Structures are given as C-alpha cells and as structure tokens.
Computed example of a mutant assay.
Amino acid sequence: MLIIEGAGVWTPPAGAANDWVEHLRVPDLSVGTYCIPAGGLDNQSPHTEDEIYVVTAGRARIVTPDGTAEVGPGSVIFVPAGEEHRFDEVTEDLALLVVFGPAYGSRMAGR
C-alpha cells in the first residue's frame, strides 16, 4: 500500500502556464496532478494512453471532437488514447487528479 500525498491538490504553477506533477508510476498506470490557473490555457496534445481526470477543485469546460461539457469538483472524465481534448474557459483555478493507463508516455515510440 502507498498513500499518495498531495495528489489532486491545487498548486500554483511554478514558472509555467500549467503544472503537471507525476506522483506515482508503475508499468500499468501513473497518477499525477494537473493544475491550470483561472484564465489559463490548456495546450496539451493527445496522449498515447487512456486517461481519467477527476476534478478536485475549480471550474472549466472540457472540449473534445464529440462535444463540450462543464466540469467542476467531483466530475470524472474518461478520455481514450489519441483523442484530442483540452480544458478551456477555466473560471476557477483547476486541479485535476489524473490517472493514465498504462503509465504516462509508456506507449510513445522509443520508450
């Protein structure tokens, strides 16, 4: 067992527009926190792994090719590998607990 301290907790980005911190990595999954400040822009690209976001703080809108949805604390979002997605209209500092399966970046070429 491992208690993952600080996962999903809002942390102001240090010197960058957004902040991604990985807390745990094993071959089949990774867990991290992604923070976007109010008014910030989400410039991520599609990932090679499936992912689940759990909104722990803040409010925004998620945009995918299939549509948009307003999200806030308690929202759980599944994004399949390769799907374009981004958060916009971040009206309150957004903190997301993120789970990747398998581990983030593990399906990228050369890894």
Rank of each mutant, 00 (worst) to 15 (best):
L2M: 13
L2F: 02
I4G: 13
E5W: 14
E5R: 08
G6D: 12
T11K: 15
P12S: 04
P12I: 15
P12G: 03
P12M: 15
P13M: 12
P13N: 15
A14G: 14
A16I: 02
A17S: 07
N18H: 12
D19C: 12
W20C: 08
V21I: 07
E22L: 11
H23F: 06
L24M: 11
L24E: 12
R25C: 04
V26P: 01
P27L: 04
P27F: 02
D28P: 00
D28G: 11
L29Y: 03
L29R: 08
L29K: 01
L29P: 06
S30E: 05
G32K: 02
G32V: 04
T33D: 10
Y34M: 11
Y34N: 01
P37Q: 14
A38M: 13
G39V: 00
G40T: 08
L41I: 07
L41E: 12
L41V: 15
N43W: 06
S45F: 00
S45I: 13
S45R: 09
P46I: 13
H47G: 01
E49D: 07
I52D: 00
I52M: 07
Y53T: 02
Y53H: 05
Y53G: 03
V54P: 09
V55P: 01
T56C: 10
T56G: 01
A57W: 02
G58R: 04
G58C: 05
G58N: 09
R59Q: 09
R59A: 06
R59H: 10
R59S: 07
R61C: 14
R61P: 13
V63L: 02
V63G: 03
T64M: 04
P65R: 06
D66P: 08
D66L: 09
G67F: 08
G67A: 09
G67I: 07
T68F: 04
E70L: 00
E70V: 04
P73I: 00
G74A: 01
G74C: 04
G74V: 01
G74I: 00
S75F: 10
S75C: 13
V76H: 02
I77S: 04
F78D: 13
F78E: 13
V79D: 10
P80T: 05
A81T: 07
G82R: 04
E83M: 14
E83F: 13
E84P: 14
H85Q: 14
F87W: 03
V90Y: 05
T91E: 05
E92G: 03
D93M: 03
L96H: 03
L96C: 03
L96W: 08
L97Y: 00
V98H: 00
V99H: 01
F100Y: 06
G101R: 01
G101P: 00
P102G: 06
P102C: 12
P102N: 06
P102I: 01
A103E: 12
Y104W: 13
Y104K: 01
G105A: 13
G105P: 00
S106R: 08
R107D: 09
R107F: 10
R107N: 14
M108Q: 15
R111A: 08
